[in-house]
């Protein structure tokens, strides 16, 4: 385009041309952005993966002082049958001394009749530090507080699954669960 040419029609022409090019480029870039969405979304959980996300567990089979471990959607959960001494230890710990204050009763779900069943504690099996699976009654190391011990970085949990010592920031999570009957627990993700 010659520089000396400054007549009006040509200027308008140039402006319109610019506008059309800008609109075209914008539409192309915008469209490409939208196309990216399905390619990103496809990596999210698929319908069947989301659906298979609850499990019913019979707790009457857990020996006193022992625990069972279940996987739901690949995530570990602990169901532990505490001894009366362990229950007492959990209940008598002063809440104010805890890094993540919670009473033992806060960490239990009611039975169908509305009462609590302190003998059974249900927790997530992932250490809140970096997701290792803590060692429990079956693993030969209950940690300094008689609950669980995470071997990865030395987090000690008490018999209520509360963090007492080590790098983990919070207590073991309580999953979404309910008592279907007095002896069957349904855990959902």
């Amino acid at each position: 385009m010659s520089e000396s040419n400054t007549t009006n029609p040509e200027e308008i022409d140039e402006e319109r041309r610019d506008f059309i090019h800008i609109a075209t480029v914008a539409a192309t870039v915008g469209g490409a952005g939208l196309v990216a969405y399905p390619f990103i979304d496809q990596m999210n959980a698929a319908g069947d993966t989301k659906a298979a996300s609850s499990l019913e567990v019979d707790i009457s089979q857990i020996p006193v002082g022992g625990e069972i471990r279940v996987l739901i959607g690949g995530k570990p959960f602990f169901l532990r049958h505490r001894t009366p001494a362990e229950v007492a230890a959990a209940e008598s710990t002063p809440v104010s001394s805890l890094p993540d204050p919670q009473t033992d009763a806060d960490r239990l779900m009611p039975l169908p009749d509305g009462n609590l069943n302190p003998a059974i504690i249900v927790t997530s099996g992932s250490c809140t530090h970096l997701g290792c699976v803590p060692v429990g009654p079956g693993g030969g190391n209950l940690g300094d507080y008689g609950g669980w011990y995470c071997p990865c970085h030395g987090s000690h949990y008490d018999t209520s699954g509360r963090i007492r010592k080590g790098p983990a920031p919070t207590n073991l999570e309580i999953p979404d669960y309910e008592y279907v009957t007095a002896s069957v627990v349904k855990i959902s993700l």
């Binding site: 399905p38 496809q42 698929a46 319908g47 069947d48 993966t49």
Partner: peptide
Amino acid sequence: ERIMRDVPFGWLL
């Protein structure tokens, strides 16, 4: 078929 039914946007891809 699972891709077509359960994976998000799997049918499209």
